[in-house]
């Protein structure tokens, strides 16, 4: 075990100068960044890219759209799931209101992850046995078809990770052109949350003979509803 001063001084000596006392001036960066002209275009490109990665997605404009969309995707499945597992749908404490009202209309009761148990291992187990994890998202990236979620006491990182399916909601206005804009926006908030999760499609691997396979660890099916008010 080496102490920090000694370790840093050693590096300074290798660099042949004392350690700077102030942050070095940032390097100039000039790269052509991907930009789209408006929210609508961003939403549609986001969706295209999300789908190209193997995710399902739709843009919904009304409560009715939302109901139709969820019914189309999941049909009677939740009813079947509930027979074996009343906690089949696991969700963040709060979802966008359009989503909350759709779930109550459909009568698909949501288990709130953070309140599901006091013991973390129990919570993991509940999430792992759920059929669908439901979350919102803070931001999206059009270019890469990515949803971005910040950790928060009312959320739970396992919801988007342990169930075999993940459903996320995002507002069109939260979709940015590129990663740069997203990182800039998060930086502006000060200290980042404990975890920022950027998810681009389902879990994938090509480790066996370069053959693409979906769902080795993370969700196998991923769904995103883009809400447009």
């Amino acid at each position: 075990m080496t102490n920090t001063t000694e370790f840093i001084n050693h590096l300074a000596s290798k660099l042949g100068r004392p350690t700077p006392t102030e942050t070095p001036p940032p390097v100039e960066i000039s790269v052509p960044q991907y930009r789209l002209s408006n929210t609508e275009e961003r939403a549609s490109i986001f969706l295209q890219n999300w789908q190209a990665l193997g995710g399902k997605g739709a843009i919904v404009k009304s409560d009715n759209d939302m109901l139709q969309c969820l019914k189309e995707w999941f049909g009677d499945l939740p009813v079947t799931w509930f027979k074996d597992n009343p906690q089949a749908l696991i969700a963040w404490d709060m979802l966008p209101s359009i989503a909350e009202s759709a779930f109550s209309t459909l009568n698909w009761p949501l288990t709130r992850y953070t309140q599901s148990s006091l013991d973390p291992r129990d919570r993991y187990s509940i999430a792992a046995h759920a059929e669908l994890g439901i979350t919102g998202s803070d931001l999206g990236i059009a270019l890469s078809g990515t949803i971005v979620m910040n950790s928060d006491p009312l959320r739970g990182r396992a919801v988007s990770l342990l169930p075999p399916r993940h459903l996320a909601f995002i507002e069109t206005t939260k979709i940015r052109n590129n990663l740069f804009e997203v990182l800039e926006e998060i930086s502006a908030l000060g200290t980042p949350p404990a975890a920022i999760e950027m998810i681009s499609g389902p879990s994938r691997t090509s480790d066996i003979e370069m053959d693409l396979s979906i769902g080795v660890h993370g969700p196998i099916e991923v769904y995103v509803v883009v809400t447009d008010n």
Partner: peptide, 20 residues
């Protein structure tokens, strides 16, 4: 364009966070 999962951790978890 981005790997399926890009995770930025700023640890440890906040005391009220449920996971991490």
């Amino acid at each position: 364009r981005l790997s399926s999962y890009t995770t930025i951790l700023t640890p440890p978890k906040k005391s009220a966070d449920s996971d991490g």
